[in-house]
Design a protein around this nucleic acid. Structure first.
Lengths: 205, 205
DNA sequence: TGTACATCAGTGAACGCGCGTTCACTGATGTAC
DNA sequence: TGTACATCAGTGAACGCGCGTTCACTGATGTAC
């Protein structure tokens, strides 16, 4: 065994990590295999001993976001307390935070890449679906509603969080985008029933 | 004047129309100038006598959606009654309808292209912003809330409509996507205060 | 401990292809006389 | 009415470039003896 044990797995993870960051910034089609491999400190030829094709890598790059046990600390300066009873409200606030808005590279792939996914293969859509379902499940437990209505409300909250951030990133006026993030945050907290514990605060946070 | 009057304007409109449809289906970067010109019945060379560059065309293709007086009838089978007092609720239902979900080519560009816009120039983002503001303004008038809260609620409703459809298009399971559209519709109507006139209906429409 | 070897992760030239953009040219048509 | 001409929308070959993918090869390293 001419290379240390685990070397291959670590290299594979490194390629996926490079791909994840570059895809978030530029989209699937605007990132070349050359760029991904160079970012990983390798050359293009090695790629095909790790993945069958470029589109296979899309699936892996999407999957890694929520399956990575550290995903909850991805956004700089945002901490989650898993034991807090306000976990769902924390997720909403973090998702629509300025940190998440600014940090495109470490963004949730559902914000950076949904249009790219919509144009991709069923396998890529399935990976996206898993990430979305994980977010819905995390929110669902804490929705203040009758049990059979919780899932619908959680889906709407997730759609509002993702949609609010997707649009904020597509606007030119940064202040208007701030206003949209705030409005989406308030509305999402209201839909989940999480805005009644403290008085509404205005302005960016 | 070797060509009939208005010929040039009509050709320009035709190119923008071809671009709009092809961009909606494949995204900005995955549509070549050759493809757009061929779709318009022309060849590549003529393009640069109408537009300075490909990215100039992005702006025009976005702009044409809401400035076109016929935009409100774009989605097959969906009619708007401008004089109806339930205009906002109609917009929400139409936006999240199965017709809009299916008809990718005639989709609202805010659903098909937000990620492409987010990676584009300030000029492209400005065009997107105009479309978004037009949608918010149309909803705002009818929001059932105190005047200073209407704008925020309208922005959240718009974000939920767009976000719900963007995500629905990115999912693999069509039934799950239907459920998401329904949940987003109910939540959007609730945020606007438009769901109290009739009892909630379950199931796809 | 020292040496020869087998392994295999990684290299980089080459492939065919399509892209955005440029530009000298064509040829159909409205106009002037 | 008929003819010569000026106009200009549109053509298509050419440019340099980067892409996804393939493949014969390299060379550092763990292992066997």
């Amino acid at each position: 065994m001419p290379y240390p044990k685990g070397h291959r797995d670590r290299t594979r993870e490194q390629i996926i990590e490079s791909a994840r960051r570059l895809f978030n910034r530029n989209g699937f089609e605007n990132v070349s295999i050359d760029a991904i491999m160079a970012d990983s400190g390798l050359t293009r030829g090695a790629f095909y001993s790790y993945f069958r094709s470029k589109s296979d890598l899309y699936v892996e790059a999407l999957r890694c976001f929520f399956t990575d046990p550290n995903w909850k600390n991805r956004w700089r300066g945002v901490k989650f307390d898993l034991n807090s009873p306000n976990m769902a409200a924390q997720i909403v606030r973090a998702y629509l935070s300025r940190q998440h808005y600014d940090d495109v590279e470490n963004s949730c792939p559902m914000v950076a890449l949904p249009c790219d996914v919509a144009r991709s293969s069923p396998a890529v859509k399935s990976a996206f679906e898993s990430v979305f379902k994980a977010m819905v499940a995390a929110l669902e437990r804490e929705v203040a509603a009758r049990p059979h209505e919780r899932r619908d409300a959680a889906m709407a909250v997730a759609a509002l969080c993702i949609g609010g951030m997707v649009i904020a990133r597509s606007l030119n006026d940064a202040q208007f985008a701030d206003g949209l993030r705030d409005a989406a945050t308030e509305a999402a907290l209201s839909l989940g029933g999480w805005n009644r514990t403290r008085p509404r605060k205005k302005g960016p946070h």
